[in-house]
Design a protein around this nucleic acid. Structure first.
Lengths: 213, 213
DNA sequence: GTCATCATGTAAGCCGTTACATGATTGC
DNA sequence: GCAATCATGTAACGGCTTACATGATGAC
């Protein structure tokens, strides 16, 4: 359930109510993301029943926003949005959710799950700061091998030039092949960076996320 | 229903039975396509009820394979697969479908439908040889404007560097932005070719190719 | 005073998948 | 005679969307 991944991943950084949560999820990437309320709210209810998230006192948002090290401006925007409201009342029974310890574990499990399609892989990358470098490397390499398989198929098809004389289909396939190659090149960069980070335990660019727990 | 588009588009070029049809659909592009039997067979039944396709005599396959101008080798492979079988019997009650006149009209309508997601757009490109140059141009430009909107959003998000310090999310977004730009560049080539073709009524029929490596 | 936005939720339904049932043909 | 492949279908279920219902707040 890729929506759980999105919810838990975003909630990991800040306590949020559904409406705001949806905006954050939509902004994760340009193409993929975007969930509707019709799936978000039931999913939140389900995760609450499973005790992966729980409703928190809105007041707790301010309390939590100060001590956290990461995502400062994200917390600040929640703060801003609350500032406008009178102390006693807010919109319609706004329900702010926070991730639980069990939710964190579930997020870790979801990130570890080797099955990933286009969409869930993107989400996993967005949240993979959570993972150990070794797990991250596995994630990237698993995806790379899937794409390598697709690329092999795409190239094989293109090597039979007679079979599809339609120039538009040809152009589509050429573009598709190039897009896969582009994705693989990106993954190769991520993999190389990860390998480099494994060599020297304290790399300059990506140490920030590792300190919580 | 994007599966209808795929079925009709492939059936336009050759009469086929379900099993073979599925293979052809899967081979259209490297990433998108691929339908399961569980959706293919019911869809074929539905299209047959709607008289967009009809079961044809397997013997008609050979008859039809000669006079058609396009997709010669595609027809030939059907011929090959039938050659192996004894005259009276084949696998289990194999049902060969052909497109009807009404089916062709439906295909044209589906190609014209302005709503397109990632998947259906790819299918439309694969089959857009069917369309008039002006309609093709509309198709490409409609898609281009959608991608331009996504790109604007993606760039705006990237222009707020403070908001998401996570390096993996950053990398994901950068890659996503680049992929959208790549798609737009491809569309621009298709559009330019189409415009050129509109100028001189008898073009050499070679739309944009990636020509990478 | 009404419109846009914020906010939460439910219900119906679409589109597709996996898993299962069935069976013929081919090659070993 | 057994496995792999070809071939067609059904059933159950899953996940997500649209459309709807409801209502508060702020801006103009």
């Amino acid at each position: 359930m890729s929506i759980d991944l999105a919810i838990l991943g975003v909630l990991r950084d800040a306590d949020l109510h559904g409406y705001e949560l949806r905006k954050r999820i939509s902004e994760l990437t340009g193409r993929a993301a975007a969930v509707s309320f019709g799936s978000l709210y039931p999913a939140l209810a389900r995760l609450e029943r499973a005790e992966a998230v729980k409703a928190v006192e809105p007041a707790a948002v301010e309390l939590r926003s100060i001590p956290l090290t990461g995502s400062l401006s994200g917390e600040a925007s929640v703060f801003r949005s609350r500032r406008r409201e009178p102390p006693g009342r807010s919109g319609r029974a706004r329900k702010v959710y926070g991730i639980t310890e069990h939710g964190r574990q579930l997020l870790a499990d979801l990130l570890d799950d080797p099955a990933d399609d286009e969409r869930s892989f993107a989400l996993k990358v967005a949240f993979c700061g959570e993972l150990s470098p070794a797990r991250r490397l596995e994630l990237f390499e698993r995806r790379r091998s899937v794409l390598a398989g697709l690329l092999a198929g795409a190239r094989a098809r293109r090597r039979r030039p007679d079979e599809h004389p339609d120039p538009y289909l040809r152009s589509l396939r050429d573009h598709d092949t190039a897009a896969i190659e582009h994705d693989i090149a990106w993954l190769d960069r991520l993999i190389a960076d990860e390998r480099a980070a494994l060599q020297q335990p304290h790399p300059p660019a990506t140490p920030a996320q590792e300190d919580h727990r």
